[in-house]
Design a protein around this nucleic acid. Structure first.
Lengths: 172, 172
DNA sequence: CTAAGTAGTGATTGGTCAATAACTTAGGGC
DNA sequence: GCCCTAAGTTATTGACCAATCACTACTTAG
């Protein structure tokens, strides 16, 4: 699918570092046809960002079926750790945050992030502070995974993840 | 200074979304002269990223003079909240994380992050988990600030920051 | 005075790329 | 057999941009 191709390629190069030609090639269509499906490159980027947040949300729903409270929070944490082993979802998120000075990108990113936040609140059914902590550690994992700290042999790098999480960020 | 101009402009547009012409113009020099000072555009970007982390580190050192332990941690937290009111330091960080698939960028970013981590460990002199928590919340503030959630009028957005921190991220 | 740096600029080049235009092909309904 | 729409293509354009080149002006040492 075109959005999948866009997600992967934008994740690698970002909005400006990825050519529409590259995306079209990966999607198996011609570059001009991309512009029949999406009016501009940025519109495609925004659609990919929306898809990215939606995928995370779906994973949370799925991982917590039949669970609630503390158990649900733990399940979401583990699901997220697995999820960002897929570098696409991780890096496109980072690309989205980094281009938030652009209004269209910011609106889409806020929207996606907000839906995620509310879903965690609802599913976890816990207090404000726990939700905040959940997202705080999630954002830390993001940068740890972005920098590939697992393959970096420095003592401080080992401490970035809590002991019970080490090795659970299964990078490819 | 040239690095300051590069920092601001790269923060706004990222490595690929910023032209060397734009940076040169802001620095008050000609575009070709930029290439006498830095061999490539990417080398300039990397230098700006290094400068960015160095500035954060210097701020931490300065804010904690004469302090230790818990007090030092609180002082660093407050200093950081003030610091990322400067959108340059915030967004260039995000740009750096988002381009970590590039090896040169990744190495510089790791290096800067590592130095920061070790400085917080040393200055705070506290246990592993507290350092981790410090950075986790720092990364959450980063995305909150990137998305400009302070000017976003949604109930969930208010909860992204702990009560005692609201309004302390003084965005311009 | 001159030779050799140092600091800088204008002009250009070769390449890339988003977006458009104009064309092709294939069904389907009547 | 013909019109219409959907799905797709090739070719092109116009703009932008990193990097290089060839040049100027100023300074300093002998």
């Amino acid at each position: 699918m075109v959005l999948d191709a866009a997600l992967s390629e934008f994740a690698r190069g970002g909005l400006d570092g990825t050519s529409t030609e590259t995306i079209a090639h990966r999607a198996g269509i011609s570059q001009p046809y991309l512009f029949r499906l999406f009016p501009t490159k940025k519109a495609l980027f925004v659609a990919a960002v929306e898809q990215c947040f939606q995928l995370i949300l779906d994973t949370f729903e799925e991982a917590t079926e039949g669970l609630a409270g503390e158990n649900a929070m733990i399940a979401m944490g583990e699901a997220y750790a697995k999820l960002i082993g897929d570098r696409g979802l991780l890096m496109l998120q980072m690309q989205a945050y980094s281009r938030c000075d652009d209004e269209e990108v910011r609106i889409a990113t806020r929207e996606g992030y907000g839906r995620l936040w509310q879903a965690v609140e609802r599913i976890g059914g816990c207090d404000e502070e726990s939700v905040r902590q959940f997202f705080a550690y999630g954002m830390l994992w993001n940068v740890v995974a972005a920098m590939n700290l697992d393959e970096y042999d420095a003592p401080w790098a080992q401490m970035c993840l809590p002991e019970d999480m080490r090795g659970k960020l299964n990078f490819d």
